[in-house]
């Protein structure tokens, strides 16, 4: 029974990544190497981030919301952006169109995040006899995270890789990227500062991820128009 539940949650957590890879042209162009590289970059970024967190943050005993600490956490969160920047611009890949590059990077990024953050709790928790909605919600969160990662990568590729973009759109791109990058801090604020429950937070995440994905898609296609 419980292994069944674990299986379900694992499908929900990791399935969309596989589906995304196989359904989009990523699989046709064999961009697995790019994703793997992005995942490795994520690993390095996560290490740096954790060291920073452990150095600058004190572990609070209670789950209270401390604005100063959260600000620091948000700043440290921007290391993610640096990681994506590195993955997008500094690494050399085989000839791959920009269009697919950001998708591959975002996918690898999100997958590594899911594996690192959710696999262990899932393995420990979801196999237990006790049933909670937590792991299903966590799977949904992973989906939202996938969408956000790809959005962030798309915005990043717009910012750093595309040269001739419409001038009017540049501030919008930056604002969007800022919003997407601060998403973890926003959810953490909602959860602890506002006392939202997990389902509500996940709902919010899903909603915003879809909105952000839509906006970045529109931005991306708007930027692509003049070049076409």
């Amino acid at each position: 029974m419980t292994v069944f539940h674990f299986f379900n949650c694992a499908i929900l957590t990791f399935g969309p990544h596989a589906v995304y890879y196989s359904a989009t042209p990523l699989s046709e162009y064999d961009t697995l190497g790019t994703s793997v590289k992005a995942a490795l970059v994520y690993l390095g970024t996560a290490l740096v981030k954790l060291v920073c967190l452990a150095t600058f943050l004190n572990v609070s005993e209670n789950d209270s919301f401390d604005p100063y600490q959260e600000l620091l956490k948000a700043l440290i969160g921007f290391i993610d952006v640096a990681g994506i920047y590195f993955a997008l611009t500094q690494l050399t890949y085989r000839n791959i169109s920009q269009n697919h590059k950001f998708q591959a990077v975002g996918l690898g990024w999100a997958f590594a995040d899911s594996v690192l953050h959710r696999l262990a709790p899932l393995w420990v928790g979801a196999r237990g006899l006790e049933f909670t909605w937590d792991y299903i919600l966590q799977g949904l969160e992973a989906n939202a995270n996938l969408v956000l990662s790809i959005s962030l990568a798309a915005l990043g590729s717009l910012m750093w890789l595309r040269k001739n973009k419409p001038k009017t759109l540049i501030p919008i791109i930056y604002v969007c990227a800022l919003i997407v990058a601060t998403m973890p801090s926003i959810t953490s604020y909602l959860r602890r500062g506002m006392g939202w429950h997990f389902p509500k937070v996940v709902g919010f995440e899903l909603f915003t991820s879809l909105v952000m994905a839509f906006i970045s898609w529109q931005l991306f296609s708007a930027c692509q128009r003049p070049s076409v």
């Binding site: 029974m1 069944f4 499908i11 399935g15 049933f131 299903i136």
Partner: peptide, 16 residues
């Protein structure tokens, strides 16, 4: 333990 039923798990699998 609060346990889920087998039917729930099956349903969940279907939905997923």
């Amino acid at each position: 333990y609060q346990v889920a039923s087998v039917t729930f798990d099956l349903l969940l699998l279907l939905v997923l």
